[in-house]
Design a binder for these strands. Structure first.
Length: 678
DNA sequence: AGCACGCCGACT
DNA sequence: GTCGGCGTGCTC
């Protein structure tokens, strides 16, 4: 049979349809190819050969030829059509990688839309959304026993808010910013968690009782542990799926496969969980959206908050942002009316006292940087239970300086700052880890180092002297501790690493506020308020939190527990300055000519083009800011330029004599968290 | 990316 | 006359 005849036969292939008529069988698979090249970020049409006709359905992974013979790529079948729009000779799908439709239609559309909004490739989102295949796991899943129906779920009420308030948002598929109740509570299992975890798990159960899954996105593993503990008291274990990047590949794939289907589940995970394959989706809930861990570090750098907004719109599910401190982004959505605002009822106001950084009468307390009122309060509270001390940095001495000239000490190898992990350890570079042996000051030539500031370990040492006989517990990145008991102890924790205390802390000291506030960032104030609020919410009911050394609007936002008001004022400032999130920003980085050309295609006022500035290595960066309404336009212009730069003529650059062709590189990043820094 | 196609200098 | 150099274009 000649190729022409075989084509004709294929063209006549028919499939019976239920009405008894015969229609031509669909024969073209439209495939999203798994390639990092931006110019390939579209659908390619492939003929489905007869032997694969039965197995090819949308969502499965396939292998397809790409360009010349022999070269193949993986891809996902997005749709199957009778007639594609490609005029030319189609290649055949080469094979099926897996028969499981891992890329649901919903997630495929979401990937396209999130990528478009960020001027990125859909496949980059898919790579985050769909874990790598594990043949063994998949085989076991395919032959799983006909699952007995999951036990029914009784919807609990979401306590702490006006009766039925949160339930109504979930039922009506609405959107809201929810202020969390700033208390800790004990679960029936005996585990202590933040009230927020109880409210979030109850919200998930409300959705699941109504037959729809809930996606629950949390910034870190400690938050995930709390939420899972809370979920276990309202849902049977078969209804809870953990899906996060820390799992081993088989575990992650097993969890991922469990999400496929119509069962209503609580799907818990970190940022990538917003792309979980839930078909019947009733709720997306995000905890603490201001935490930078919600910001995806891989291109196209889509924030959980933004992916959740797009998915909510697309699948008409409910959307809840839970938090103690409102981010300016969420505040903007509240002001727009896009999100409702729900606060605890009755209101719960923690006791917060701002304290000046004055010397204590007690020499040892003064050495530990604790003002006398706070020191007295901590000593009294230690009679009854644990006391939390929040510090800015881990280690012993977070910085070192030259004894002779006072200049801050830098690494001889990479210019990074030096720090000391313990009282006796050799100073080392914070950036590259090199031990600072034979160090000398590059300013005056001095060879002696002086410790500057106190990390958690040094604070612990000082406090040990100020409170003799008290048990000291250190919690930081190196010593993660989830919870501590109700017995008296001083818990020294770096911000964000505070353990939960059984019964809540009897007093809390926020020590390094002054230092935190001087950090250079557009978001300092917002971040500080979030760190302090999250720590304050760990106090026992009626216990006092002391904020040391910080005054002004920031301190009063904490003491009055009016974080939303602070976010409103902060957002008003950003509007005045045309800073995000009042406007959106995109950074364009690359060779000067490429950047200039790309920026020229974007139609924004000259005032909104900041740069170019030299970033070294022959590369420059320009920041473009624009109103939200212009987002689609700016993204599509810049995307076109990225593709043009990738396909256009290559610049020849001299490299050790040889001429190496390289593409004029052009990178675009939307909504960078810190575009105006550095 | 990676490979095929296309137009100009030193070779049997 | 042509073999092969790399600049250019394309991937169903």
């Amino acid at each position: 049979m000649t190729a022409a005849v075989s084509d004709a036969v294929a063209g006549l292939a028919v499939a019976p349809d239920p009405a008894g008529l015969s229609v031509p069988a669909p024969r073209i698979a439209r495939v999203l190819v798994d390639s990092p090249l931006p110019q390939l970020d579209r659908l390619f049409d492939y003929r489905i050969p007869d032997n694969l006709r039965a197995g090819i359905v949308p969502g499965i992974r396939v292998r397809v030829p790409l360009r010349s013979a022999g070269r193949v790529a993986d891809g996902y079948v997005i749709e199957i059509v009778d007639h594609g729009d490609y005029v030319g000779v189609l290649s055949d799908v080469e094979g099926i990688v897996s028969t499981v439709p891992v890329l649901s239609a919903e997630v495929a559309v979401l990937a396209r839309r999130t990528a478009d909004r960020a001027a990125g490739s859909a496949i980059d989102i898919v790579r985050v959304a769909v874990p790598g295949r594990q043949a063994r796991v998949e085989k076991a899943w395919l032959v799983r026993e006909a699952a007995s129906p999951l036990p029914p779920v009784v919807a609990p009420s979401v306590a702490g808010y006006a009766e039925g308030a949160i339930e109504a948002v979930i039922r009506d598929r609405g959107r809201a910013a929810v202020d969390a109740v700033p208390l800790v509570t004990q679960l029936p299992s005996g585990v202590w968690v933040g009230e927020w975890a109880v409210a979030m798990s109850a919200a998930a159960a409300v959705s699941i009782a109504a037959g729809a899954s809930a996606i629950l996105a949390l910034p870190d593993y400690r938050d995930q542990e709390q939420l899972e503990a809370a979920l276990a008291s309202v849902l049977p274990p078969e209804r809870i799926v953990r899906l996060d990047a820390r799992q081993s590949n088989p575990d992650r794939y097993r969890a991922f496969l469990r999400c496929i289907g119509d069962d209503a589940l609580a799907i818990v995970g970190n940022r990538s969980v917003v792309y979980a394959p839930a078909t019947t989706l009733g709720l997306i809930a995000v905890w603490d959206d201001g935490d930078p861990l919600h910001s995806e570090p891989l291109a196209p750098y889509v924030h959980t908050r933004d992916a959740a907004l797009l998915r909510q719109e697309q699948q008409s599910c409910a959307l809840l942002y839970f938090g103690h401190a409102r981010s300016t982004e969420v505040e903007r959505l509240v002001e727009l009316g896009w999100l409702a605002s729900v606060s605890p009822k009755p209101a719960v106001l923690p006791k917060v006292v701002p304290t000046a950084q004055q010397a204590s009468n007690d020499r040892l307390a003064a050495q530990a940087r604790i003002p006398s009122t706070a020191w007295r309060a901590a000593r009294e509270a230690l009679e009854f239970g644990p006391v939390l001390v929040q510090v800015a940095r881990p280690g012993y001495a977070p910085r070192l300086a030259c004894v002779d000239c006072g200049q801050s000490a830098r690494c001889l190898r990479c210019e990074g700052p030096l720090a000391q992990k313990t009282a006796r350890s050799v100073p080392a570079c914070v950036w590259c880890g090199a031990l600072a042996v034979d160090w000398h000051c590059d300013n005056c030539g001095g060879a002696k180092l002086r410790q500057v500031g106190s990390g958690a370990t040094r604070t612990a040492e000082d406090l040990g002297r100020a409170f003799p006989g008290v048990r000291i517990i250190i919690a930081d990145g190196d010593h993660p501790i989830l919870g501590v008991g109700a017995e008296p102890a001083l818990v020294i924790a770096t911000r964000g690493a505070e353990p939960i205390a059984a019964g809540g802390y009897r007093a809390i000291l926020l020590l390094d506020g002054e230092r935190m506030v001087t950090r250079e960032s557009l978001r300092v104030a917002e971040d500080c308020l979030r760190w302090w609020s999250n720590a304050t919410a760990l106090a026992a009911r009626g216990a006092t939190t002391y904020l040391v050394g910080v005054g002004g609007a920031l301190a009063s936002a904490l003491t009055t527990w009016r974080q939303a008001d602070f976010a409103r004022a902060e957002l008003a400032d950003r509007r005045r300055l045309r800073f995000p999130p009042a406007v959106r920003v995109a950074t364009v980085t690359g060779a000067l000519e490429a950047v200039a050309k790309a920026v020229a295609t974007v139609d924004v006022p000259a005032d909104d083009i900041l740069g170019p500035v030299d970033t070294g290595a022959g590369s420059v960066r320009t920041i473009i800011r624009f109103d939200y309404a212009a987002g689609t336009r700016v993204a599509s212009s810049l995307r076109a330029e990225v593709i043009r730069a990738a396909t256009g003529r290559r610049r020849a650059i001299a490299q050790r004599g040889a001429r190496v062709p390289i593409a004029p590189n052009l990178r675009v990043r939307f909504d960078d968290v810190e575009p105006f820094l550095e």
